[in-house]
Amino acid sequence: MASDTASGDKGSGPNESTETDNSMFECNICLDSARDAVVSMCGHLFCWQCLHQWLETRPNRQTCPVCKAGISKDKVVPIYGRGSTDQKDPREKLPPRPQGQRAEPEAQGGFPGFGFGDGGFHMSFGIGAFPFGIFASTFNFNDGRPGPPPAGSAQHQEEQVLSKFFLWVAVIFIIWLLLA
């Protein structure tokens, strides 16, 4: 059964010389004649779809499947034969898939401790004394708080008023400290 299907691909009596001729232009990945052919800088022929899938499989280590030379999407050359009806660059047919976007979680449940995880460096002091408060807010990198609201929105104006109010509170407090 297996051999039936296999020979059905090329016809039952393939000519020896035509077969070797054709194999020159076979994709190195699917072993079929290359569709939307591209050639790497090291000279190896692939279907664009096959090569693209391989590059997506190992995004960190993109090497030519045949010779392990460095390879990239931008450094392959499309091949246009005379008989091909579609003269478009095959690389445009299958646009590179956008990378998944990964947002930081909004709320961090519980005490994060001294975690050196993915979210960046987070340092928190357990003492509420005055100088430490400054440090704590200075050293809180990338703590996952939501960004400011867009300018013009009601929340933005509200926050502007609040920020002015606290600025005045701080100024009065400092003057009181100096006078006392």
């Binding site: 296999a6 699917c30 072993l31 079929d32």
Partner: peptide
């Protein structure tokens, strides 16, 4: 389908 197609091609070459 592409996986089976390729396996058939390999089998054909290896048998031959």
């Amino acid at each position: 389908a592409s996986m089976e197609k390729r396996l058939h091609k390999e089998l054909q070459a290896l048998t031959k």
